[in-house]
C-alpha cells in the first residue's frame, strides 16, 4: 500500500541509544535501542517474548517507575521534550493527549466498572478545556469513527457487554480521542481472532491515514508486520539486531536471528518441508551471553561473536544489521552452492 509519507519530514519521535536496567539486575534489559518515526509512518518492533519490546514502549510512555527501571543512557525526543527526562506531571499531560498507547488485552485495560462512553470522555476532559457534554459528544464521534455499530446506544455499555474486537475498538477510540501525534500499539491484535484482527488492522490503517498519526506497533507476528509496517526494527534479548524498510527486512534479511525467525514461521502456502527452528531458547536476564546475545543459538556463530558485540552496520539504504558476518553468503559460501545444486 502506498502511503503518503514525507521522507524528509522531521521525525515526531526519535529514540537514540536507549538503555534501561531493572534495579538489581546484572545486565541492561534493553540496550542501544534507536529508532525514529515520522508523521504517518508505521514502525513495527518485532521480537519474541522477553526481547524488551514492551519494556521499550512502557518506558517511552513513562509507565515504568524510574525507581525500578533506571535509564542507563539515551534520549527519546518527542518534539522539544526528552520523554526520559520529563517529570511525572509533565508526562501525564502528554500521555493520552499527544502520545498514547493501546494494549494487548482490552479487557484488562478498560475499567470494568465505568461505562465506555465515560471512559473515553475522561481522556478528553483531562486534556482539553471542554464541557462534559462536549466530551461525551467527542466520545460518541470516536465510537462512530472506530465503526462501532449503533454507537449512541453503546455509549452507556460496560466493557463486559462488548466482544473482544469491540473492546479493542473502544481502546483505539480512547487512544485517538485527542488526535495524538504518536500512537504506540503493543500487540493490539494478538488476543483477537484472525477475522477480527483483519478488521482492527484495517481500522488502524484507515484512521492513521486520516490523522497522520505516527504508529509504533509492537508485535511478534510477521504477517501483521508485512501487512502494516513501513519500517521494521527487529529486537532480540534487549538488543536491536536489524532495522530497515519493510521490503528490505523481508527481501534482504541480514541478521541470523531475523533469518531464523522468518524461516521458523510456517507458510500459508504449500508445505515446503520441515520448519527451520532456532535451537535453544531466549536467554534470561541474569544469564545474558556476552558479545552478540544471539551467539549461543546462532548456527553461524564464531568465536569472536561471544567476545565483541557487533555494531549496527549499514548494509543497504537505511537498512542496518548487527552481525559480524553479514551478508552471510559472502562468509559461508560453500553451503549455498550445495543448497543451490540440490
Amino acid at each position: 500500500m502506498s502511503k503518503a509519507i514525507d521522507l524528509n519530514a522531521a521525525p515526531v519521535l526519535s529514540v537514540e541509544n536507549l538503555a534501561l536496567r531493572f534495579k538489581g539486575a546484572p545486565a541492561n534489559i534493553i540496550d542501544g535501542i534507536s529508532f525514529a518515526v515520522r508523521p504517518g509512518e508505521t514502525l513495527c518492533i518485532v521480537g519474541e517474548s522477553g526481547c524488551g519490546k514492551s519494556v521499550t514502549a512502557l518506558s517511552l510512555m513513562g509507565l515504568l517507575p524510574r525507581s525500578v527501571a533506571q535509564v542507563m543512557s539515551g534520549t527519546a525526543m518527542f518534539g522539544d521534550h526528552d520523554l526520559l527526562e520529563l517529570s511525572q506531571r509533565a508526562m501525564a499531560d502528554l500521555r493520552g493527549n499527544t502520545i498514547s498507547m493501546i494494549f494487548q488485552e482490552p479487557m484488562t485495560s478498560l475499567n470494568p466498572s465505568y461505562r465506555i462512553g465515560d471512559q473515553i470522555a475522561e481522556v478528553v476532559l483531562r486534556h482539553k478545556s471542554v464541557t462534559r457534554a462536549e466530551a461525551r459528544q467527542r466520545a460518541l464521534q470516536m465510537l462512530d469513527r472506530v465503526k462501532i455499530p449503533a454507537a449512541s446506544s453503546r455509549l452507556d455499555d460496560y466493557p463486559h457487554e462488548l466482544s473482544g474486537g469491540m473492546r479493542q475498538r473502544v481502546m483505539i477510540a480512547m487512544a485517538l480521542a485527542n488526535d495524538p501525534a504518536v500512537l504506540i500499539a503493543d500487540e493490539p491484535t494478538t488476543a483477537l481472532d484472525v477475522t477480527i484482527q483483519a478488521q482492527i488492522i484495517d481500522l488502524i490503517e484507515e484512521l492513521q491515514k486520516e490523522t497522520g498519526t505516527a504508529l509504533v506497533m509492537i508485535t511478534h507476528d510477521l504477517g501483521v508486520v508485512a501487512e502494516i509496517a513501513d519500517r521494521v526494527c527487529v529486537m532480540y534479548a534487549g538488543h536491536m539486531v536489524e532495522d530497515g524498510p519493510v521490503e528490505a527486512i523481508f527481501d534482504d534479511p541480514q541478521h541470523p536471528y531475523t533469518i531464523g525467525l522468518m524461516s521458523s514461521v510456517p507458510s500459508v502456502g504449500p508445505r515446503s518441508g520441515r520448519l527451520a527452528a532456532i535451537g535453544g531458547m531466549v536467554p534470561a536476564i541474569d544469564n545474558m551471553p556476552s558479545g552478540c546475545r544471539f551467539t549461543p543459538r546462532c548456527p553461524f556463530a564464531q568465536t569472536n561473536c561471544a567476545v565483541s558485540q557487533p555494531p549496527l552496520d549499514e548494509l543497504g539504504p537505511s537498512h542496518r544489521a548487527a552481525c559480524h558476518y553479514a551478508p552471510l553468503e559472502t562468509v559461508f559460501p560453500e553451503a549455498v552452492f550445495q543448497e543451490a545444486g540440490s
Binding site: D252, I259, G269, P299, F332
Partner: peptide, 25 residues
C-alpha cells in the same frame, strides 16, 4: 491463499540457515 515468492536473497539465506542449523542439531 497465495504467498508471493520470496526474494532470491531471502531464499538463499533461509537455505543457509536451515543447512547450518541442521548440521548443528
Amino acid at each position: 491463499v497465495r504467498e508471493p515468492p520470496r526474494s532470491e536473497n531471502a531464499e538463499k539465506r533461509f537455505a543457509l540457515f536451515r543447512e547450518r542449523s541442521q548440521r548443528q542439531e
